[in-house]
């Protein structure tokens, strides 16, 4: 078989064979782009808004229009919120740290903790 042209190839990623070696992940160079927005969509009445993804836009109005085109092309939503990603505060960088530990040993907060005598109903 002919050897590949100086780098490994793989079908990784959707549309197939691309080089997997000799390709930089990032250049480390800062390039100016529109700000990042997080997008939340209410799929239908009766449901709350849920996070669906993010996009770049120059302002809130364009972020809403872009969100409609990117995330609701098949009527996936009846209402959209966009929030500047920089305005969101998140709990902690590591999702498995002590922040959630206080809830870990309080099993009595769940109804299944309690014994119910046989024959008692509607409890």
């Amino acid at each position: 078989m002919t050897q590949s042209p100086g780098h490994d190839l793989s079908a990784e990623g959707g549309h197939g064979a691309v080089p997997t070696t000799g390709v930089p992940a990032t250049s480390g160079r800062a390039v100016r782009d529109w700000p990042l927005w997080e997008v939340f969509v209410r799929a239908r009445r009766g449901l709350s808004h849920g996070h669906v993804g993010s996009l770049h836009a120059p302002d809130a109005e364009m972020a809403l229009r872009n969100a409609r085109d990117v995330y609701t092309r098949r009527q996936e939503g009846v209402s959209i919120w966009v929030v500047p990603a920089a305005a969101i505060s998140a709990s902690s960088p590591d999702e498995k740290d002590a922040f959630f530990d206080p809830a870990g040993d309080k099993v009595y907060r769940h109804p299944t903790f309690y014994d119910v005598p046989d024959g008692v109903e509607h409890l």
Binding site: G13, G14, H15, G16, A17, V18, P19, V23, P24, A25, T26, S27, G28, R29, A30, V31, R32, D33, L36, G53, S54, L55, H56
Partner: peptide, 29 residues
């Protein structure tokens, strides 16, 4: 691109890497 940005990449930088031929796209196109 949004998924790649969650790993600390910038979309504008990735596009620049495409335009300068340092990152590739599928040969089928």
């Amino acid at each position: 691109y949004a998924a790649a940005e969650t790993l600390g990449a910038d979309r504008a930088d990735l596009l620049d890497l495409l335009h300068t031929g340092r990152q590739k796209y599928s040969s089928i196109f």
